[in-house]
């Protein structure tokens, strides 16, 4: 009988993600597709991935702003510190996969978001996260290979955050 547990051997080749995480996949883009056996990464694809770094920076900033704007959130049953830490991990992986964004991460950062005065901070935070999830998902569709997989996983992770914040 077949096992219900995830079939590890059929999973993604881990090396593909290690390469993407280290930025090696994009560094290899300068090689011809034929020389490495891997598809070349277009400048457009690389730029799109760098753009998603800025989107994720805004998510990390939103968690920090939400905690400051409503300290009670951190004391509630909401695992805000876990969510914020995961958002940071996602940012680190995206930066690693988009080396062009790592030299000056603040240069492309949008202005820090802030909740409307007197508004519901939790709802505002959930909206920020939902917007970023949608952005990553749309970018995922336009990417290929390990970059698509990474963006899709980050988008799904943020959809989970959105559910946790509901």
């Amino acid at each position: 009988m077949a096992s219900l547990a995830p079939p590890a051997p059929a999973g993604l080749p881990r090396r593909a993600f290690l390469a993407a995480s280290a930025g090696l996949a994009l560094l290899a883009a300068g090689c011809t597709a034929g020389s490495s056996g891997a598809p070349a990464v277009s400048t457009e694809e690389a730029d799109r991935l760098a753009g998603q770094v800025a989107v994720q920076e805004a998510v990390v900033a939103a968690y920090a702003v939400a905690t400051t704007a409503d300290p009670a959130l951190a004391l509630s049953d909401l695992p805000l510190s876990d969510l914020a830490a995961q958002a940071g991990e996602q940012l680190d992986r995206l930066r690693a996969a988009a080396p062009s964004s790592t030299s000056s991460p603040s240069a492309s950062s949008p202005a820090p978001p802030s909740p409307p005065p007197g508004g519901d901070v939790r709802t505002w935070l959930r909206e920020q996260v939902a917007g970023a999830a949608a952005s990553h998902a749309a970018a995922c569709v336009q990417q290929t290979g390990a970059r698509a997989a990474l963006l899709g996983a980050v988008a799904a992770g943020l959809r989970g955050h959105e559910a946790a914040l509901a």
Partner: peptide, 29 residues
């Protein structure tokens, strides 16, 4: 569908008493 699966997983992790209830990278090794 990956996002939908993670949303369901969040609910089930909470029901199972798991922490954190979310995953930073659902589906990645």
């Amino acid at each position: 569908e990956l996002g939908a699966a993670e949303v369901r997983a969040v609910g089930w992790r909470a029901a199972a008493g798991r922490t954190p209830v979310t995953s930073a990278f659902p589906g990645l090794p």
